[in-house]
Design a protein around this nucleic acid. Sequence first.
DNA 1: ATGGTAGATACTCTA
Length: 267
Amino acid sequence: MAIPLLCSNCLVKIATWNVNSINVRIPQLIAWLRDADPDVLCVQETKCTDDNFPEVVLEEAGYKAAFHGEKSYNGVAIISKDEIKDVRLGFDHDNEDSQKRLIAATVNGVRIVNTYFPNGQALDSDKFVFKLDWIQHLRGLFDEYYSTDEKVLLCGDFNVAPDPADVWNPGAWEGHIHFSLPERAAITYVKQWGFVDAFRKKNGDVKAFSWWDYRAGAFQKNHGLRIDHIWVSEPLAATLKDCWIDTAPRDQEKASDHTPVIAEFDV
DNA sequence: ATGGTAGATACTCTA
């Protein structure tokens, strides 16, 4: 009798969380893994080199990890209970100086692409040009390597709020970084590859946020943006059971400015 | 319009 390699008729939980320094946040991260019990957690802004990644602590908590980091800035990782296969680090054209913003891997037959989109700073900044260019390259990655017939999941900190419902005061944010038309158009182009927004599929047009500025008591006033996303291909969307934002970690001491987004699949 | 906070680094940058 063959031993099944993949889970069948079971729930798989995949989450994304910008932790804003994984070494500062490791106590909250370990606690959240125990409470929320995700199968996979994609993290962004690890802000550490690969030799400083807290691999052992995660192992003790029952998780393996694949990571792609650098000193001080950026950095992404995929943390998983199950085996992490076929890891990709960055784009084909990246060199050793390229910002570490992309890691992809296959877990239980799902191709996971974990991303930390450039912030862009301001529309008149060189960093904004870099942001739009980076997003174009991301679409290119799906065109080149992946099929919409496969189970593909794109998640991470997109640094873009797609719609007015994703912004606490869309009137004031219109034209500003995170909610300007060029960057919204850029992520729409990525979405048109064949993605479904998991949160919107399960929650309609509800207003909900995944990030609140550290400043001006933004979290207490619920002055937030929904810039952390889980987008899935149609074959994966067909198995989507639920998608939600867990605001509890944002309310803790020493919180990240982002909070986890979780999608649950019946595979 | 300004400045408010946090993290990493090193006397400032990024978000």
